[in-house]
């Protein structure tokens, strides 16, 4: 047990987080914009013929403190999560420190056919769900053969 203490705790936590991220990012090729520090928040993106659905996993945040921006087809989600670690002078011990704390910013490149005026964002149970409608013209249409 004494040897473990020689490593700073956050390095170990960082390694664990990395491992977890690699497991979760199974079969995923990162975009040129890379991954945010610690992969926070986790992002899931889905497509429907009518919309693009983005889910950002941002637990424990005040929805008003999350900044969402859509500019030139690039969606940015930014904010800050406060640390709940005890103050140094407190008589408490931190055994595990894995949760993300600090500023975050993640970027999603959206398809060309989205309508930037039809965006809807909802925050529920720590998940931010952003739904972006596609332009009508982009909907697949059946072409009849004459």
């Amino acid at each position: 047990m004494i040897y473990k203490a020689l490593f700073p705790r956050d390095v170990l936590a960082e390694l664990e987080r990395l491992q977890r991220d690699m497991q979760q990012a199974d079969g995923f090729s990162p975009s040129i914009r890379g991954l945010a520090r610690g992969g926070f928040p986790g992002l899931n993106v889905g497509n429907t013929p009518k919309s693009v659905e983005v889910y950002a996993f941002v637990p424990g945040l005040d929805p008003n403190a999350i900044e969402i921006q859509l500019e030139k087809g690039v969606l940015t989600i930014a904010g800050e999560r406060k640390s709940n670690m005890p103050a140094r002078e407190d008589k408490s011990t931190v055994h595990i420190d894995e949760r993300f704390a600090g500023k975050f910013r993640r970027v999603v490149v959206l398809p060309d056919d989205i309508n930037p005026d039809a965006v809807d964002a909802q925050y529920r149970d720590g998940v931010l769900h952003i739904s972006i409608q596609r332009h009508e013209a982009a909907l697949p249409r059946r072409i009849t053969i004459q």
Binding site: M85, E98, F100
Partner: peptide, 10 residues
């Protein structure tokens, strides 16, 4: 595996 923080006090 959800990430956790564990803090012990008196």
């Amino acid at each position: 595996m959800p990430p956790v923080d564990v803090i012990e006090d008196a």
